[in-house]
Structures are given as C-alpha cells and as structure tokens.
Design a protein around this nucleic acid. Structure first.
Lengths: 341, 341
DNA sequence: CCAATTTTGATGTACGTAAATCAAAAAATC
DNA sequence: GATTTTTTGATTTACGTACATCAAAATTGG
C-alpha cells in the first residue's frame, strides 16, 4: 500500500499535526524538523492522495475560459465542447465560467485579464490575441501564481504554463506538402485564403506553407493572400473573384474559417477545372465538401481534446502535479474522405 | 452543491442505511421503498462521488493486459506505455498486470482468458487474435460481468465492451488514396508488404487499400501481397527480391511491422528509381526514413493513447459510468515529414 | 534561571461514502 | 393475536486528508 501521512509521521518521529504543517506549508515548524519530515516524505515516496485531499477541503476548481466572440463554426464548436465540460463539472469538481471578448481586440482582453486577478480563479484558459499588452498581462498573472494556458492560439514568449493547440507552422508546412504532392508535376498558381494576417495562428500557417512551397515546389506560385476575415460572404467574394480573373489557379489553401463561402465559390466557379483544395477545420460544411470531392484534404484541430487538455493541465498546475506530456500534445488531424470520424 | 446520500435519505423519507442498501444493491429493501429512493435519486440528480466511494472502499482496480509476445517495435512501444501506466498506478488506483501469450495462437489466448476468471480482475484488455474460440471465451467473460476491451486488434462480433484501436479498413483506404494521389497520373505497380494475412488488422488494412485502389486508381496494379511476418529480415528479402524482379513497381504500401527491413531494401535497391512509399507505425526507423525521403507518409496509431483509453474505459465500466466517446476514439495519425511530433 | 516565545503533540471534527451491527418497527404467516 | 420473518432505522467506524484548538514541551531572550 502507498504510504499515508501516518506513515510519514511515524518515520519522521513527529506527530500528525507537524506533518500536516509541513505538507500544507503552515508556519510553526522548526527548520530541522521540516527537513526531517521532508526526508521521510522523499524516502517513503509519499504522494498526497489528491482525491482524499479534495474531499477534505471540499475543493472545487474555479476555471475561466476567455474566448473571442467570433461567429464561425470553429468557435461555436469550441463553445460546445466547453459546455460539455460544464456538464461533467460535478464529477470533475470544476466550476467553469466562460467570458467572451471582442475578437482581435487586445485592450479588451487585457482588461478582462486584469479584472480576473480579483476573482481568484484557480486557472485561466484563453484564446490569445498576440499583442505585447496581452503578453504583459498574462505574465503578471503568472507571477501572481495563476495557472494559465493558451488555447488554440498561443502567446509565444510569454510565461503561460502550457499551450493547448496545434503547431500552426507545422500545419502550414503539412498543407503545402500535401498540396504539392497532390498536384504532382503540374505547374500553376495557388490561391491562399486566410482570416486575417493580424492573427498569429494564421500568420504561422502561412509562414509554414510558403516555406515548404518555396523549398520543395518551385513550380507552384503563391498568389497574394486573400483576407476573408473568417466571414463566409467575404470569402465567397474573394475566391470567386480570384478564380474568375486567374485561369492559372490550380490549387487553393484555406487556412482560416469562413469555408462555407469558399465552398460555394468553388462549386460555382470551378466546375470546369480541376482544383486541388486543402482547408482547415472539420465542420459540417467542409466534411460534405470533402466527401463530394470539392475539398481534397482537411487539416483539423480537435476542439474537444483542446478543452479537455486545458482543463487537465490547469487542474494539475493548481495542485502542483505533473501532466502526461504525450497526452496533452494536440495533434494536427489530417482527414481525407476515407478516415473521417 | 451537489446532493449527497443524506439529501437522498431526507427526500425519500428513509434512513441513510436504506439509501446505502439501494445504492449498493444490498438485500432487505421492500420494492416500494427501493422505488421511492430511486425516484429521489433521479429527482435530485444525485451522482455518487466516486472519489469518496473509492476512498471508503479502499478500492483499487486490478486490470490485466494480455499481449502477444511479438518482437517488433510497435509491441515494444505498447509495452513501454503499459509500464508508464503502472508508474501512475498509485494515483489512478490501478493495479496492472500484463500477460504475454504466444502470437497468432488462439488456444494459448483462450487458456489465459479461462484462467483469468478465477483471479477476478476488474477489467481485461487484450490484443485479440481473431478466432471463434477466442470470441467464445471473451463472450463468456463478458456474460460473467467482466469489463473487456480489445486493444489494437478487434474481435468483431464479440460482446467486448469497447475497442481501443484504429479503424483498420479506414487506414487501408487512406493509405490507398494518399499513394494514389501522390503518384498522380503515373501508371505502374504497387507492392504490398504485410505481416500476416492471418491477423485481422492486416487483412482489414489490405481490404480497405485494395477497395480504394480498384475504385479510384485503376492505373495502379496491386502485386500479390508479400507476407513478411513482421520480421525485418524476411521483409528485407521479400522487398529486395520484388524490386529486383519488377521494374514496374512505383509504389509500396507496408501495412505491418518489420519496416527496418523494408527501409534497408529500399535504400539498397531503389536508389535509381522514384518510389512512393507509405508505411504504418512511427518508430525510430520509420521516422528517420520519413525525414530522408525514403518513406513519403506514415500512418500511425498512438499506443500511449490506446493504453490510457483502455484503462479509462475499463475503470468506467467497472464503476458503471459513462465514457466520453470522443475522447476514446483512437485516431489514425498521418505523418508527413512536416508534422512529426 | 525565569519568563516569553516558538515549536510540537494530542485530539477532534469534517468531507462523502461504505459497511457493519443491533434494535425497532412493520409485514407476513399461522 | 402471537410468532416469525422481513424491512427499516440508528449508530458507529473507516478511508486519507485538512484544519482548528489547546496543552505541553522546547527554545530563546534577558
């Protein structure tokens, strides 16, 4: 059986109360005694029974999720997964609150973060907007010992404890290689549809994409990026226009949201030509398009996994426990029509 | 706050002891009283606090993993993941034992399964060998209320509670489409290297592969399957021989283990020709081959995820709890050189 | 060496559930 | 209606930890 506090007390030759004082870093223990207890803990390999501790403390984990108020399928999906997590709250002892902030608005995000310090959640997950002020606010909270994870979009260079999202540079590189290999020896032009170059994950995807294209597929020329603002209408307009004006387009990489518009444009304007299309995010629309061959491959991040991972990591950090690294790696899912879930 | 047994007792107008009798299906409760308690449970939305219950019971979960004694990278990896899980046992209250049985030997597997009934584990995970006797043995154990999950290789048509592994037909189909698309307009022959057609997962991969090849890539002809018995030496010999004798081979699909031999053969015999190669299972060898362009894509199943999933599912079944379906779906990972973990 | 202070021990209660015991009440049997 | 049997209640202990209180011991300062 694993050792208990009683075993530690016996081994260290002190009382239960003293062990408790050491374990919960309460004052009133002489330095030498504290060391004696800590030695016993190490030697017996004691690990606190988190379940029993939580029971005794009546502990819950108040968590805050901060999301951009974006009206696209992916954010809706992310929201839905958080609601699922809320349903599991009783069993997981979590108490989850979500806050919506205007998208692409660092100031709003910062003010929410500042307000949070007072309400003392035991963990914060946020879809980061990449700005110096946000980084500073996050770093401040981390220094005040709040566990913080970034979700979907990272905040490189900040002190956040963990990033629950995919490697977007790798995603862009993967998209490029898939597109390049699928196109084979053909020469032509590639249209790229993004949401906004102000968002870090989109910038990174493009960066990875152009890098591999330049290195490995010199016969494919990347056209200037179309910024669809993750809006189906704008995306439709931009793509339809590009296809109408440029007959040399043989491939499309859609690295953001708004794929509904892209798909409509492809069906209207590309019936007579063979396009190879790679898009991000598996939704009802992209799934249907993959099945009817309008899209050739979908790169996806599993929002459910991201949310569950963020919660696990925040709880672990709050308890000062280790996480299973491999379990928390968010994979880049590649879907062809054959391996759809 | 979530309701406790006390609340149920008060609501149903019975004592704590009676609630306990109902909850733990102990005898000595009149039918009408039992119903009154169950109604209260439903109306208050009571859910047993598993952590507290386990604490009170001093419960552990004795689990058994039954694995084939195969000497290949994948099985070594699977074993390593189980050892990792053993290290987490104290925190997860598991008590994991692994049993090795000769590979491809239904009789041995059956006799292990029969022996298990006496030792009363609270859950069994097995890499199934697909045979009627095995199915019967599994069904018998399920009827005796043992939670059972198949791992890596399924036992279709049996009563097993869950399958922790990938959809191998989908894997084969995906491999075919990747290979077909990568090869583009080229015509030629495809070599297929398998472990053994006696193993269900290999049969299924081949089935999916040939189906998509026939439907969508009629210009590619599949050569007779090479059975390498998951052995690098045999694989090397078979592939080297095939390449030497057939100049028309332009693609290879390796759907089993023994890729070390395949890679060596490719490097020796295919320096002067352009081959497109898809293999299964990410190991040190396949990873290196992917990076140096010997292999074009690797399909993988995450052994760590499979083991953790099997454990979660077995524990949940033992407690009669629901599992998060999406979390337990084992994905088919597709790795190009750009998205390696 | 005494007093003041700090450190330690002993003990009890609590968390939500399991499991056991024994007495009391209710129902079924004759 | 008395007796047996079944059902229910009341109470206790336990799991491993947290946390509080009060007394006792050890240490420190003067």
């Amino acid at each position: 059986m694993r050792p208990t506090v009683h075993d530690i007390a016996a081994a260290a030759g002190v009382s239960l109360a003293t062990v408790d004082r050491v374990l919960n870093q309460r004052p009133g223990v002489r330095h030498v005694t504290r060391e004696r207890v800590e030695t016993a803990i190490r030697e017996l390999g004691y690990v606190r029974d988190v379940a029993a501790a939580n029971l005794a403390k009546g502990r819950t984990y108040p968590l805050v999720f901060i999301l951009p108020a974006s009206d696209n399928s992916f954010m809706h999906g992310l929201n839905a997964e958080i609601r699922q997590a809320v349903l599991r709250s009783p069993a997981e002892r979590t108490d989850i609150r979500t806050i919506e902030v205007p998208a692409f608005d660092p100031a709003a995000l910062v003010s929410v973060l500042e307000g949070l310090a007072r309400e003392k959640p035991c963990g914060i997950a946020l879809v980061a907007t990449d700005a110096p002020d946000v980084r500073a606010a996050v770093d401040r909270l981390v220094r005040e010992r709040f566990p913080i994870v970034t979700l979907v979009s990272d905040l490189t260079g900040s002190l956040r404890h963990h990033y629950a999202g995919v490697d977007n540079i790798a995603a862009g590189r993967t998209a490029a290689r898939l597109l390049g290999r699928f196109l084979g020896p053909r020469k032509g032009e590639i249209a790229v549809l993004a949401g906004s170059m102000l968002v870090r994950d989109h910038r990174e995807r493009l960066e990875g994409f152009t890098a591999v294209m330049a290195e490995e597929f010199p016969d494919l020329a990347i056209l200037p990026v179309l910024e669809g603002r993750d809006d189906p209408e704008i995306a439709h307009m931009l793509v339809a226009d590009a296809l109408a004006r440029n007959a040399g387009i043989i491939g499309v990489y859609s690295l953001g949201a708004g794929n509904r518009g892209l798909i409509r444009a492809l069906k209207e304007k590309a019936v007579d030509r063979v396009l190879t299309v790679i898009a991000h995010e598996l939704t009802a629309h992209t799934r249907a398009a993959l099945i009817d061959n309008t899209i050739d491959a979908i790169l996806n991040q599993d929002a459910g996994h991201e949310v569950r991972s963020a919660i696990r990591v925040l709880k672990a950090k709050a308890d000062g426990l280790a996480v299973i690294e491999a379990q928390e790696r968010i994979r880049l899912d590649i879907f062809l029509k054959d391996n759809l879930p």
